[in-house]
Amino acid sequence: MPLERVPLRSLGPTVVRRRLAGDGLLLETGPFVTRIRSRIASVAEGLASVYRDYPVHEPGAFHDFDCELRAPRTLRRFYHPQVLFLSDRRSVFKPLAYHQAYPMLEWGMNWCIASLVQHRLVLHAAALERGGRAVLLPAPPGSGKSTLCAALAHNGWRLLTDESVLLDLDAGTVSGPVRPVSLKNVSIDVIRGFCPDARLNAPVHDTLKGTVSHMSPPQASVERAGEVAEPAWVIFPQYRQGVPARLIERSPGECLTGLIDNAFNYAALGTRAFHGLGGLSERVRSFDFVYGDLDEAMDVFQRLADGR
């Protein structure tokens, strides 16, 4: 029997709030379905804003992850209220200030993929596809990865993920959960200016990462979320103000070590991961990429896609 799934936008705000407060909203993001429960208004508003094109499953259907956001049941709920993130009814982070409930949901969903997925090698990287070929962008926080990813997603590249690349070790293909892109601080206004069509939710201030806002992927990326891609490039980005865009080639060995450093479950998957990443490093072209201007960066990626 086919799964019954409808776009979140078709439910309307009342049904979304009712499901979140009841048995849960079952949200499909790429290969995963997450059950989300919360009575917090900003969670419902955030989901309705950035996930409006995403499929939602009928209550009671199978789900991969179980997430709940709620206030701690202590007197703190009256004085400087806080919010807890629970996965499978277990609190996994320290509580945050109540107004950070929505970004905490996004971080919690990232945690679920990084901690619970073992059937794929999970890389901390962005990935985008063009013409069936994928570019992987592994990088630590603060490197300009998400800004670059958001700009590419609005300039001819299909977004696979901003955060968690899923590598199929048997097929060698990559996919992603096609979740919203997390933008921080000055990147929020940079992307608003660079991609006027981008849909961003209301910024949340004073988080551990500063001010954060989430950008919805373009609708075409959401609709093609089930399509895998062949990795063709692994590019390690680094934003440096005022620096001309430049690619510096990495050897396959240097590519391999960079990928290992950005893998969540490399040790758990052992020799399969070693040979999988080793093979990937030999098949792709790999570069370090420094950039200080998004227009220049778009030109570099255009030339890569064109084979120049």
Binding site: S251, P252, G253, I260, Y266, H275, G278, S281, E282
Partner: peptide, 22 residues
Amino acid sequence: MHLRPCGEQWAAFHTGTGDTHL
């Protein structure tokens, strides 16, 4: 120990420690 060529270099995976060396 698992060994594989990686471009002009070799990569070695130590199954005991989970470490990888170029």
